[in-house]
Amino acid sequence: MATKLNRRAVLAMAGASTVLLAAPLAAQDDTLRLAFIPQENPDKLLGDIEAITGWLSEQIGVPVEGFVTIDHAAAVEALRNGDADISFMGALPFVLAEAEIDAIPLLSEVYRGDPSYTGRVFVRRDAGIQSLADLRGRDIAFADPISESGYLYPLAEFERAGLIDRPEAADAFFGRVFFAGGYQQAMQAMAEGLVAAAGASQYADLLLTPEQQSQVTWIAESDAIPSHVVIARPGLDVGLRTRFVDAMMMLNKPEHRDKLRFLYGPDGYVRADPAAYEGVRDLARRYGLLK
């Protein structure tokens, strides 16, 4: 699908931060480097990263640094180049990274007791949009071109409804299509009326203000998607990888759960099951993203 405006332009339209990338510090052999994707305002995320990396450093016993990438693809590239050792990302970027660089799944997020979630198509309540068909000729913002809940799964609902027959046909169905760079940016563009709809995670409305939340609704919901996953580059030292996982699992304990708010706010983590992502692999193959 072609992007009619670039990502930076949409961020500016939505009033989001234009600080998209905090470059990783110079690599050090004894430093664990974490890449974060900008699902929410990058400025807030930078503050969260500083808090959680400090705690992880204490638990693991080595310096831990974090940085925000522009998008999922940049996170995968950072893993490939060794600029990052571990990354937090969606299920689709993980299966692509698995195929491209043999990335290893470590942990899956849990929300409301479930290691899965859905993608939704959100609209403003006052827009007069009742169904997906009502979006013909209207503008839509997706989170990221390699996001499962922020692109592929919501887009698949238009196929299921018989409105498009392949992803490339979306350009002819919609007015304009934007990739906003994250859930919050896509939702903000929709909430402010800059686009008619947003494709994002079922929880993405929680990134809006309470007033905005009361003004939006959703009109379509996807099949279940495995939750976001924490992955490692294949060459990362096994002992360090194990210590990182053990530290992250400590966040499930009551005395440490308050720190989950610094990691996109899940309810906790479970050890990742590679088999859980087979449905995502199938969808990626159907859309030509995997062979």
Rank of each mutant, 00 (worst) to 15 (best):
A2R: 08
K4P: 14
K4L: 11
L5E: 12
N6E: 12
R7E: 05
R8S: 13
R8P: 06
A9I: 15
A9N: 12
A9E: 10
V10D: 08
L11Q: 12
V19Y: 13
L21Q: 12
A23S: 11
P24D: 07
L25H: 11
L25Q: 14
A27C: 11
T31P: 15
L32G: 10
L34G: 06
L34I: 00
L34F: 01
F36Q: 02
F36D: 04
I37E: 13
I37P: 13
P38A: 04
Q39M: 12
P42E: 00
D43H: 02
D43F: 00
K44H: 12
L45C: 04
L45M: 11
E50R: 12
E58Y: 00
G61E: 08
P63C: 08
E65R: 06
F67I: 00
I70L: 15
D71F: 00
E77I: 00
A78N: 11
A78M: 09
L79M: 09
R80Y: 09
N81L: 14
G82V: 01
A84G: 11
A84F: 05
F88Q: 09
G90T: 07
G90L: 01
L92V: 06
F94Q: 06
V95D: 05
V95T: 05
I101F: 10
A103G: 07
A103H: 03
I104V: 15
I104E: 15
G113E: 03
D114F: 08
T118W: 08
T118H: 15
R120Q: 14
F122A: 04
F122T: 01
V123Q: 10
A127P: 01
I129S: 03
S131W: 01
R136L: 03
G137L: 01
D139Y: 04
I140K: 05
A141H: 06
F142C: 04
A143Q: 13
P145T: 15
P145R: 10
P145A: 05
I146Y: 08
Y151W: 13
Y153D: 14
F158K: 06
F158L: 08
L163F: 00
R166F: 05
E168V: 13
A169L: 11
D171M: 08
F178R: 02
G181S: 04
G182P: 07
E192V: 09
G193R: 02
A197C: 05
G199Q: 08
G199Y: 03
A200C: 09
S201M: 03
A204H: 03
D205Q: 14
L208K: 12
L208A: 06
T209V: 09
Q213F: 02
S214F: 04
Q215A: 12
I219C: 02
D223A: 13
A224Q: 12
V229D: 03
V229G: 03
V230W: 09
A232I: 00
R233E: 02
R233A: 14
P234L: 02
G235H: 10
G235P: 10
L236F: 11
V238H: 13
F244R: 08
F244Y: 08
M248A: 07
M249I: 08
D258W: 07
D258C: 03
K259C: 10
K259S: 11
R261T: 13
F262N: 14
F262R: 10
G265A: 15
D267A: 14
Y269M: 09
R271K: 11
P274Q: 06
Y277E: 00
E278T: 13
V280L: 05
R281D: 01
L283D: 01
Y287G: 02
L289N: 06
